[in-house]
Design a protein around this nucleic acid. Sequence first.
DNA 1: GCCTTGACGGTAA
DNA 2: CTTACCGCCAAGG
Length: 109
Amino acid sequence: MKSQFFQDVYEVVKLIPKGKVTSYGAIARYLGTTKSARVVGWAMNNSHTLNNVPAHRVVNRDGLLTGKNHFPYPNAMKNLLESEGMKIQKDKIINFNSYYWDPIKELEL
DNA sequence: GCCTTGACGGTAA
DNA sequence: CTTACCGCCAAGG
């Protein structure tokens, strides 16, 4: 595999439970590339090459739907998140902390 | 091969 | 509070 990193990113994203979200930085940290959150974002950009990657569950550290512009339609991300029980206001997840799912905390035992 | 951009994050001013 | 800058890494021009 040429880009194992990307594969790992997709794997973690796929592990995000329904109704939960995480951040690019959290994924990056889990993979050991703490300072390379941007690369995670780039990986997500390439996530369109797959079909099992719930990119809508990945937001930035503020719970802001920064990647919504990259979806087929801008409100697709919001719509999906709301479908999973979350509330979005101004492209931001309300009570983000309650929905936050940290792979390090949940997976790394 | 160099420079810019980007779905980020943190710190400084 | 807002703005700016730096680090990090991959892709595209």
